[in-house]
């Protein structure tokens, strides 16, 4: 850290610059096989700190969008991405084993486990929640949305929390899936 308080360590300096930038997504036209869907995503600019709420009917392609469209592109941008998957009860075993590999004892309660697993997230990390409200308490969802992270994208069937800044809907017509602004 130099005298003016600005970090001199390269990665810290990069991080402190990076996490102020907006996240630019799209425009994309992406085919995902299987299941043979084409995603048409408009150009979107999300300011730092955005909390995005994503809804859509059963089978519309929300999970495929998170895991096969969004996550790879965010990783390619060099972002650290924490995905809390729809099959969280299965993923919990991976989370517990990862905590053990860090030398930590895995909490029994699912809510505490997810919070402990997200602990190493950095200011420019991104959190993706896929129907996490099916397994986690509203209080934990709120805490996750409040984490000091660059962006949080949450998929859900349930009501939209007031702390979210943007709302998108995934709509599917046969094999074409597109993202609409607002419910």
């Amino acid at each position: 850290m130099n005298s003016s308080g600005q970090s001199t360590h390269p990665s810290l300096r990069e991080e402190s610059l990076q996490h102020e930038d907006p996240m630019l997504l799209g425009p994309w036209e992406i085919g995902v096989h299987p299941p043979g869907l084409t995603y048409r995503i408009p150009a979107i600019s999300l300011p730092y700190g955005s909390r995005v709420w994503l809804s859509g009917d059963n089978g519309a392609g929300k999970t495929v969008f998170l895991e096969r469209v969004l996550l790879p592109r965010l990783a390619a941008m060099g972002r650290q991405v924490f995905l809390v998957a729809q099959d969280l009860l299965l993923q919990a075993h991976v989370m517990a084993a990862v905590l053990a590999s860090r030398g930590q004892r895995a909490p029994r309660c699912l809510d505490d486990l997810v919070m402990a697993w997200c602990a190493p997230a950095r200011p420019n990390s991104i959190l993706l929640l896929d129907e996490a409200d099916r397994h986690l308490s509203p209080r934990t969802i709120h805490q996750l949305l409040e984490l000091p992270l660059a962006f949080v994208v949450a998929v859900s069937h349930q009501g939209r929390p007031c702390t979210t800044t943007h709302c998108f809907t995934i709509c599917r017509h046969e094999t074409l899936v597109h993202l609409e602004i607002g419910p």
Binding site: A96, A106, R108, C109, L113, R134
Partner: peptide, 13 residues
């Protein structure tokens, strides 16, 4: 859901 019945938010034991 009846009292005491574990709901879907099970723990990990």
């Amino acid at each position: 859901v009846q009292q005491g019945e574990p709901s879907s938010r099970g723990d990990l034991s």
